[in-house]
């Protein structure tokens, strides 16, 4: 069992949890994720790491309540425990193994969308600790959905905010913000790292391609074990089938087949809705079987 040390609401339906997990904290690096299972009946859910402290032995995760499992997880409070917390999984970000001298000559721009802001944070923090100030764009639908702004501002070079409705910062999508920076403000970037919804990463990659900027994306595919066993997370990158969990989760955004990845991500959507319905009815003490036999 893994204890929840702290729970904070970052925005409506978005929570941050600090979990006591000394082994994971000891080995965690930017770019990696964990698999969480709330209880005996729970799914194995892949979640990105949003912060960690190897000395104190904790790891933070950020969760948006969207399905049965994330709702179950967010119903727990500090002091409660979760059944499983396995990781760190996946390969660390490429820059972690790059020579610091060459890394320091690079201009890096992070593009974070929604809850994708969470996994960007440990990357920006790592770079900051190694003397590199990366620029960061944080995008969200509206001001209320923005998360981790203050933490990010403290460590980033320039922080840019984009909201679809213009309630804070730049009015428009993150892609618009990138165009603004590159075309209007004449910024030069050697590397873009985009983490957010699949559709956002697809369009960020399309935008940076026209500027010829190398772009890394972090894929949030379906997974079961997260250790290479099931292949549920397979994606096409540069025409080759790879496993997100062991070959990724970070890939060259210009090589990823996003349309296939988005289609595969939706494979269990109707089943998940069904599960949510059953869970709700179970909670209400009535299980409706009508229409569920197909």
């Amino acid at each position: 069992m893994f204890k929840i040390l702290e729970k904070t609401e970052l925005a409506n339906n978005i929570w941050q949890m600090r979990i006591e997990a000394p082994r994971v904290a000891h080995s965690a690096q930017p770019g990696q994720f964990v698999i969480v299972r709330v209880d005996e009946q729970g799914e194995r859910v892949p979640l990105t790491i949003s912060d960690y402290d190897s000395q104190a032995g904790w790891v933070s995760i950020v969760i948006q309540t969207i399905g049965v499992s994330t709702k179950k997880l967010c119903a727990l409070n500090a002091g409660d425990s979760i059944a499983d917390f396995a990781g760190p999984l996946g390969r660390p970000s490429e820059f972690v193994s790059e020579a610091p001298e060459s890394l320091r000559t690079k201009k890096i721009l992070f593009v974070a969308g929604g809850v994708g802001t969470a996994p960007v944070y440990p990357q920006v923090k790592w770079l900051h600790e190694h003397g590199i100030q990366a620029d960061v764009i944080i995008g969200a639908k509206t001001k209320e959905m923005l998360i981790m702004i203050d933490q990010m501002r403290a460590l980033a070079g320039n922080l840019y905010i984009a909201t679809d409705d213009g309630s804070e910062g730049f009015k428009g999508m993150v892609t618009g913000m990138i165009e603004e920076l590159v075309e209007k403000q004449g910024k030069k970037y050697d590397l873009v790292i985009a983490i957010g919804p699949m559709i956002m990463m697809k369009f960020v990659a399309a935008t940076t391609k026209k500027y010829g900027i190398k772009t890394i994306v972090s894929l949030n595919t379906l997974m079961v074990d997260g250790t290479g066993m099931c292949g549920a997370c397979r994606v096409s990158v540069g025409g080759r089938t790879v496993f997100t969990c062991v070959d990724g989760p970070e890939f060259d955004g210009h090589q990823v087949d996003f349309d296939e990845a988005m289609r595969r991500q939706g494979m269990y959507r109707t089943l998940e809705q069904r599960a949510a319905k059953i869970a709700q009815e179970r909670a209400e003490g009535h299980v409706c079987k009508i229409g569920l036999d197909k």
């Binding site: 729970g42 179950k72 079961v224 595969r264």
Partner: peptide, 27 residues
């Protein structure tokens, strides 16, 4: 990579380890 193609490992892991055939389980 079409939807509906899975490895036997995935299919069996979902049923055996995760007990997906049982409505009490979330997978």
């Amino acid at each position: 990579n079409l939807n509906g193609v899975v490895s036997a490992n995935e299919f069996l892991t979902r049923t055996n380890l995760m007990k997906a055939y049982d409505d009490q389980y979330d997978t």
